[in-house]
Design a protein around this nucleic acid. Structure first.
Length: 275
DNA sequence: GAACAGGCAACTC
DNA sequence: GAGTTGCCTGTT
């Protein structure tokens, strides 16, 4: 039985900003501030109803979705802590309502391996095909959805079986990572227990995982909010708006949240939706 | 048709 | 250790 639950005031969770800030690939807009997504073999709709953010989900799953949406964290305080200087303050205002999702470790790692040298629509299409071909189907009020396939499942595949994904040279990286995770050579639970830097170095032991992908996996998969992935958007933003030699680590335990605010703000700006 | 893209790895010097 | 190049594919 699916039910609608109230989560928090709209100011603390913007579905649009949270699902369009580049952290996840399995959420799609049904309307403005109304998103349908899949995580850990469950589906939910997250939307605003007046001044309240709500989730529609299986009645037994509300605990899962509250955790996934990081509802126990105080984003007002975290946001305040990264408002250092005019530029970061602007970004934090633009991104207010972004929450860092608590995504599955393997799904985040695999998704960001796929992300390299790809744009978001194409990443989403590759991930969707991976799920449709190798994930488990399940019924939802919105039709049949597919879970993200476990590493153990992907580990059994050979490269030609991934050809329909059109993932190109990333296919070998995906299978290699799946085998490492499934065999325990890459222990993501152990990585979660390490400090952020150690986890990043550990993940870089996988082929196809460099600094950017490792930082994304640490931030979004291990929920280490101090990780600060630098992609071309962030590189440009740092160059144009921050003093030379600025060290993102100086932003403290929520540096990764600041990164998401910057990323979202820069993309809104380039789309002409902000400043 | 060539250049490029939210990156990595292997190779060069 | 800094710089260059190939890699699949889809888009411009």
């Amino acid at each position: 039985m699916y039910k609608t639950f109230e989560l928090c005031p709209a100011g603390e969770l913007s579905p649009y900003k949270t699902f369009e800030c580049g952290q996840c690939f399995r959420w799609n807009a049904l309307g403005e501030q109304d998103y349908l997504g899949v995580a850990s073999g469950r589906a939910a709709r997250v939307f605003l109803s007046g001044e309240t953010a709500c989730v529609e989900c299986g009645e037994d799953d509300i605990g899962f979705w509250r955790a996934y949406l990081d509802m126990d964290a105080d984003y007002a305080a975290a946001r305040e802590s990264v408002m250092r200087g005019a530029y970061l303050t602007d970004c934090a205002e633009c991104g207010a309502g972004i929450r860092i999702l608590r995504q599955d470790k393997w799904e985040a790692l695999c998704s960001f391996i796929i992300s390299q040298c790809n744009n978001i629509p194409r990443i989403k299409s590759i991930v969707e095909k991976l799920c449709a071909l190798f994930g488990e189907p399940f019924e939802t009020p919105w039709g049949v959805k597919y879970s993200f396939p476990a590493a153990e499942r992907v580990a059994l595949l050979e490269e030609p079986e991934l050809a329909p994904l059109r993932a190109g040279y990333r296919a070998a990286y995906i299978i290699n990572a799946a085998r490492a995770v499934a065999s325990g050579d890459m222990d993501l639970d152990a990585a979660a227990a390490m400090d952020g830097d150690a986890a990043r170095r550990y993940l870089k032991g996988l082929s196809g995982v460099g600094d950017k992908v490792a930082n994304c996996a640490v931030l979004f998969g291990l929920h280490r909010l101090d990780a600060f992935p630098v992609d071309v958007w962030i590189k440009r933003a740092l160059r144009e708006h921050m003093p030379p030699g600025f060290d993102p680590k100086s932003l403290g335990e929520y540096a990764g949240l600041a990164q998401q605010y910057m990323f979202f703000a820069e993309r809104e700006k380039s789309a002409g939706r902000w400043r």
